[in-house]
Design a protein around this nucleic acid. Sequence first.
DNA 1: TATTAGCACTCCAACCGATTGAGTGCTAAC
DNA 2: GTTAGCACTCAATCGGTTGGAGTGCTAATA
Lengths: 351, 351
Amino acid sequence: MELDDRKILILNAIIETYFETGEPVGSRTISKFPGVTFSSATIRNEMQDLEEMGYIIQPHTSAGRIPSDKGYRFYVDNMLEAKDSEITDMKGLLLEKTEKLEAILKQVVTLLAKTTQYPSVVSSPAVATNRVKFVQLSNVNESQILCVVVMGGNLVKNRIIDVIEPLSNENLLKMNMLLNTNLNGLTVSDINLELIERMRRSAGEHEGIVEQVLKTVADTITEDEEFEVYTSGATNIFKYPELSDNKESASEIIETLSDREELREFIKETQNDEELKKNGIRVMIGAETPLETMKDCSVVTATYELSDGVKGSIAIIGPKRMDYRKVVETMSRIKNGLDKALKKGSSSNEE
Amino acid sequence: MELDDRKILILNAIIETYFETGEPVGSRTISKFPGVTFSSATIRNEMQDLEEMGYIIQPHTSAGRIPSDKGYRFYVDNMLEAKDSEITDMKGLLLEKTEKLEAILKQVVTLLAKTTQYPSVVSSPAVATNRVKFVQLSNVNESQILCVVVMGGNLVKNRIIDVIEPLSNENLLKMNMLLNTNLNGLTVSDINLELIERMRRSAGEHEGIVEQVLKTVADTITEDEEFEVYTSGATNIFKYPELSDNKESASEIIETLSDREELREFIKETQNDEELKKNGIRVMIGAETPLETMKDCSVVTATYELSDGVKGSIAIIGPKRMDYRKVVETMSRIKNGLDKALKKGSSSNEE
DNA sequence: TATTAGCACTCCAACCGATTGAGTGCTAAC
DNA sequence: GTTAGCACTCAATCGGTTGGAGTGCTAATA
């Protein structure tokens, strides 16, 4: 059987009504829809077909119908096609370029949650492919050396090294030369034990302390290559009874939303999606979601780009009857806004 | 009327039973308590007295009794007196001294939430009174200068300054001298416009760029003097029906627990408490709590100390029928553990 | 005088059955 | 092919009933 125009009309009517009410939709309700000229009986027949085809579900014998995952998928795909071009610029978001990336992202995630009324997640860009730009050691006092590393995108990392014997200023200068010559332009993944051993050998003298410092520098650079995750509006799920009536699942969702580790996993997983790469935006419905916790939710993700192709993510979690149109629109705006803001004014200090 | 021994026994029995069940407690239940030799009728009479005195409440005519805020207060005060001395050391918490303060605190807050099964909050120490230890500017490239500031407690702040004209190495050296001579040992609140103006004048030449750099340095030091707040286990409130049955209030509590700004306010407010200063631990019940959201909760707070008297907070939020004994014990342990860990090994890098 | 047993009373919570109403599927007529 | 009409289903709701937990009071007891 094929989806003719009438079936599509009815399916859309069911889905949209269900978005508003969250209740199963009956044939009589549909028959009152603008554009519907045929009777409820006809609709009932069509509904039987639609159910057989898997687009809608009847929760129990004498109830109305609700959309199945397949139904949502159909709706979203159609919508994406229609809307794709209309994506406009994010006007409302005031990005002061001098601000830290962290502050911007916090602002963005709050804005997103407020606008859409769904829980929102934003990640800072992953920096595994980031390159070392500048390294510097300085003596803070006799027993402490400060190590600062500037990475691409002006990400600054630092650490204080406690040393037993002080390092003379000449030796400090030498070390700085050595470090910058050897490490400049390398990525996090380029830095390994062999390289450190080589540097240690070429430093020659004052063995013990050099080794300690070198190790710490390497450690500083490689540490924390994980991106940060920001969330906002987790409690918005209480607005949707189908997600929050059951305490168990409500608590699980909120738990997931406040578990940074889990969210990081989640973002990593979604970032490698081929559809996401194509469109820049991806909608996942129910079981398509990578997390078990979210099997009753839909997730919309997008990526934004930092200057050097390093990507960060934006995501929204909501009920399956999410206002996909609005969400996709809002996300597109924010994505574009972020793309622009970050590609231009990259003079900001991250972390 | 006075609280004689028997009344105290009954009151404690009611409170402890209510802790377990969360249901109003009747006279018959109490009569089966170990140590209770008198009948339920006698207990009923005593309960009438206790109610008159304001220690317990009857939710409706034919129900058992639940403790009032005054009842909890009595219980907690008695308990604190008895327990105060037994405070032991935190053994379970493995603090590797080299770890960052941030990591430690995250570990602590998780541990606290897991052990107590209540939502937990931990704040990093406030640094408003912190002193500048070391300042350094370095040329990253022609258009960027890196500014790093080390504060007391080895807190490192940094920023990248975009400049139009490059700063020569000699001038950079001069600036570094100037900065360290003038700023060393000052607190965040000591740094004001007048001081900057003075420094600018004593720098003399290359006006424009000096002013920009000086301002940014001052900005870097004074920024972000706010402490950070970590939370864990917010969803534990779902374990206590009296807090989570009402969606409205459940959502409000979780909202509060994920609103950093609000938590900061909350911590600031509680840190100045005179009882807290005396005992190092404070229990707030119901209306005693500073936040409206938590009027149905109890809050236990403690402070831990960094080397220089700078204080951070630990807090637990739970139902009024909280296991105060266990919570106070756990908090004491963790407080002590933190005090020790941070006073000794302050070689860690914060932020 | 303090304690206790006993009893009448209250009130909530749970249960039950009847009712309602939304919605269906089917059939026969258009 | 469409529709009107009807019998049927089922969840939700409502009011009445019941049971039990718990009280307060009183009268008897130590």
